[in-house]
């Protein structure tokens, strides 16, 4: 457990230091959200109707943008070899790095979601559900993203391939995440959507470390 905590602490500090990933992910999030009213028009009703979807897509893209650094820099500077030799199994290392990725991207994205809801005229009654859905959904993005990042870690300019690999697997998270927000905004219960998101999170937490660790071992040969 000590190894786990040491890796999480190190990755969080790296991401927060000298303009690390967190700042850029949040800026990208805000920029993407800003583009939508400019593209579809400023009518409040229209914005309210699409806001849940737009915020989720912006968050998904921001998370995606930060994923290629998840293992790449450690791979290039030799840190990944030493992490693989740490006392903890590689699956635990993957879980620790995914958690650190979530703490430094997914969690801030969820925290700033009400601000995006404000900009896009999302009904305030849905803000709480939006944050809750993001708290459940963004860790799934980090975990599935870890598989893609591990598979593409040795590939030069693997960023595009990483997007192609992980975006199809982001679809269920996007669908249930947006459905939860839409249900809440429409006065319906978001409970089934949130439960499905929680199920996705449990499934991803069980599967992703195993698959990502297998991919990393392959790239360390």
């Amino acid at each position: 457990m000590n190894t786990f905590a040491v890796i999480v602490a190190r990755d969080v500090r790296l991401a927060l230091r000298h303009g690390g990933g967190t700042m850029w992910a949040l800026l990208f999030y805000l920029l993407t959200v800003t583009l939508f009213p400019l593209a579809v028009g400023p009518e409040p009703e229209m914005l309210a109707r699409i806001s849940g979807g737009v915020i989720w897509v912006a968050a998904l893209l921001a998370a995606l943008l930060s994923l290629d650094r998840l293992f790449q820099s450690d791979f290039e500077d030799g840190s990944l070899e030493l992490l693989a030799l740490s006392p903890a199994p590689l699956e635990v290392v993957v879980l620790a790095k995914s958690l650190a990725h979530w703490l430094t991207t997914g969690l801030p994205l969820a925290a700033f979601a009400p601000l995006m809801g404000l900009l896009l005229n999302l009904h305030p009654s849905a803000w709480g559900v939006l944050v809750l859905a993001m708290l459940l959904g963004t860790p799934v993005l980090s975990l599935i993203g870890a598989i893609g990042a591990a598979l593409t870690v040795g590939i030069r300019r693997g960023g595009m391939l990483l997007s192609l690999v992980v975006v199809p697997f982001f679809v269920p998270t996007l669908i249930f995440g947006v459905s939860a927000v839409d249900a809440a905004a429409g006065g319906l219960t978001p409970r089934p959507h949130l439960l499905l998101l929680a199920a996705l999170l449990l499934g991803a937490a069980a599967l992703a470390p195993w698959a990502a660790a297998a991919a990393l071992r392959l790239n360390l040969e």
Partner: peptide, 15 residues
């Protein structure tokens, strides 16, 4: 990974 996820994706798209 795809074979595990495809049924989930299919179900979510139906939903």
């Amino acid at each position: 990974v795809g074979s595990v996820n495809l049924p989930i994706i299919h179900y979510s798209v139906d939903w």
